[in-house]
Computed example of a mutant assay.
Amino acid sequence: MHTLNNPRIIKTIVKATALAAAAALTLTTAACGLPSASIANQQSSGSAVKLRIGAQPYPLYSDVYVAKEEGYLNQELAKEKATASWDSFKSGPLVNEAVAGGNEDAGFMADLPAIIAKSTGQKISIVSNLAYGEKALAVLVPKNSTIHSVADLKGKKVGYAVGSYAEHLLALLLDKQGLGLSDVQSVNLSADDQVVALQSNSVDAIVIWEQYITKLKSEGAARVLADGTGIKRGNMVTYFTDDFASKHPAVVRAYIRAVQRGADLIASDPDKAANAVAKDFGVSPAELKEIWKNLTFTTKLGPADTKAITDVKDFAYKNGILKSDVNIGDLINTSYLQ
Rank of each mutant, 00 (worst) to 15 (best):
M1R: 09
M1W: 04
H2G: 06
I10D: 01
K11A: 15
T12G: 03
T12H: 02
V14N: 02
A20G: 15
A22E: 05
A22G: 06
A24V: 10
P35N: 06
S38C: 01
Q42A: 12
I53L: 13
Y58C: 00
L60G: 10
Y61N: 04
S62I: 05
Y65N: 02
A67E: 12
E69L: 07
N74L: 10
E76M: 05
S85M: 09
D87Q: 14
D87R: 13
F89I: 02
G92N: 03
P93G: 05
A98I: 05
V99M: 08
E104A: 07
D105E: 06
G107W: 00
M109L: 15
A110W: 00
I116Y: 01
S119D: 08
I126S: 00
A131S: 15
E134Q: 13
V139P: 00
K143M: 05
T146F: 05
T146A: 11
I147M: 05
H148K: 14
H148A: 10
D152H: 02
K154A: 06
K156E: 08
A161K: 05
E167S: 15
L169F: 00
L169G: 03
L172G: 13
Q177D: 14
L181C: 12
L181A: 10
D183Q: 06
S190Q: 13
S190W: 03
V195K: 03
L198P: 03
Q199V: 04
S200L: 13
A205L: 09
A205F: 02
E210L: 10
E219N: 07
E219K: 05
A226W: 00
D227A: 02
A245R: 09
S246Q: 13
R253S: 14
Y255F: 15
V259D: 05
V259A: 07
I266R: 03
A267Y: 03
P270S: 14
D271F: 11
N275W: 03
D280L: 04
I291E: 04
L301T: 07
G302D: 14
P303T: 11
A304V: 11
T306V: 12
I309T: 00
A316C: 11
N319A: 07
N319E: 11
K323W: 00
L331G: 00
I332Q: 01
N333M: 10
S335D: 09
L337G: 07
